[in-house]
């Protein structure tokens, strides 16, 4: 990644005033990165940014309240930071934001498929257009555009929307059109029974590990979640679709207009359940009703955190 050195220098300068800087480093194999907590000067060397920097590090911020924290953000991650600021879940003075122009991150499940599901990866070389992977004894040349996460194709904010230190040149969004919800249309057009059957099938394999919840930067009830609460007793511990789906619906409702569609829920899900679909549907409704997009303006109040006697687009009197 082009601006990696510049970013390291920027962090090196700021580190003496910070308890920790959260970035990424190489993961368990050449195709994976992992969140990297920089506490000492020598930790900076391991920093790596690029198409494997998939994790939204903003998730860690509420847990580090009270500490001076630096965080490296992609454009999409910066929206979560903004949302956390809006909701007073983090303190702006305690957070130092490092931004860089993001050209997209990969979807690991697309790579897995492209490599024929081998987990034996020997090397990986990235150019601006391709990822060359040595895996299972073969060399695979993957076009980056084939393995990028779906969210990157509609991304309007490749540069951090909020930052204290921005390295590199800001770039224009690569997405042709405004972030739309075209991909929802096919789903919305399905008859009710089919949509119902779809979720029945998808939620059936949920193992209730709550990686979706814990990876979500906006899921802030943390250790006081309705999923485990006995009083009130919302959910049973039975292995059934009803309870699993109930959790996802409550989760999605609580994220309506707060969710920045970072997709961490779906990425974290070990069972590959298309959870982002639910969140996007909620956000689409919010956008239509309130013309609001989460995590763009630090001064704005998310619509469901505010109250108006007369909503412009909810014509209650005409019901």
């Amino acid at each position: 990644m082009k601006y990696q050195q510049e970013l390291k220098d920027s962090i090196r300068k700021a580190l003496p005033d910070l308890d920790v800087v959260i970035a990424w480093s190489g993961g368990f194999d050449p195709l994976h990165a992992t969140p990297h907590f920089i506490r000492r000067e020598e930790d900076i060397d391991k920093l790596e940014i690029g198409p494997f920097s998939v994790h939204n590090l903003a998730t860690y911020l509420p847990g580090l309240r009270g500490k001076k924290v630096g965080i490296v953000v992609k454009g999409c991650d910066s929206r979560s930071v903004i949302e956390l600021l809006q909701e007073n879940l983090i303190n702006r003075d305690d957070v130092t934001i490092f931004g860089f122009p993001c050209t997209g991150v990969v979807d690991q499940s697309k790579i897995r498929k492209a490599l024929g599901h081998t987990g034996k990866v020997d090397f990986c070389q990235i150019t601006s257009q391709t990822v060359v992977v040595g895996a299972g004894g073969e060399e695979h040349k993957l076009r980056l555009s084939k393995v990028l996460a779906d969210k990157c194709f509609t991304c309007q904010y490749p540069n951090a929307l909020i930052s204290d230190h921005f390295v590199g040149e800001k770039i224009n969004p690569s997405a042709q059109s405004e972030a739309g919800y075209d991909d929802l249309e096919a789903f919305e057009n399905m008859p009710l029974a089919e949509r119902f059957a779809f979720w029945q099938k998808e939620m059936d394999r949920c193992i209730r590990c709550y990686a979706c919840r814990n990876a979500c930067p906006m899921c802030v009830c943390r250790d006081h979640c309705l999923a485990e609460s006995r009083d009130p007793h919302w959910l049973s511990q039975e292995d059934n679709v009803r309870d699993k789906w109930m959790f996802q619906l409550i989760h999605a409702y609580h994220l309506a207009g707060r969710c920045t569609e970072c997709g961490e829920c779906q990425r974290a899900c070990p069972m590959d359940i298309p959870l982002l679909l639910l969140k996007k549907k909620m956000n689409k409704e919010i956008k239509e009703l309130f013309q609001y997009e989460a995590g763009v303006d630090p001064e704005a109040t998310p619509p469901l955190l505010s109250f108006k006697m007369e909503e412009e687009n909810i014509k209650e009197r005409e019901w």
Binding site: T34, Y60, I207, C209, A211, A268
Partner: peptide, 24 residues
């Protein structure tokens, strides 16, 4: 530091055997 406290590791583990008991 990077742990999210989720259950993916334990639930996918062939040797993790801990359980809860609850009444419904």
């Amino acid at each position: 530091a990077k742990c999210l406290s989720c259950g993916a590791c334990t639930y996918l583990c062939p040797s993790c055997y801990c359980f809860n008991i609850t009444d419904e």
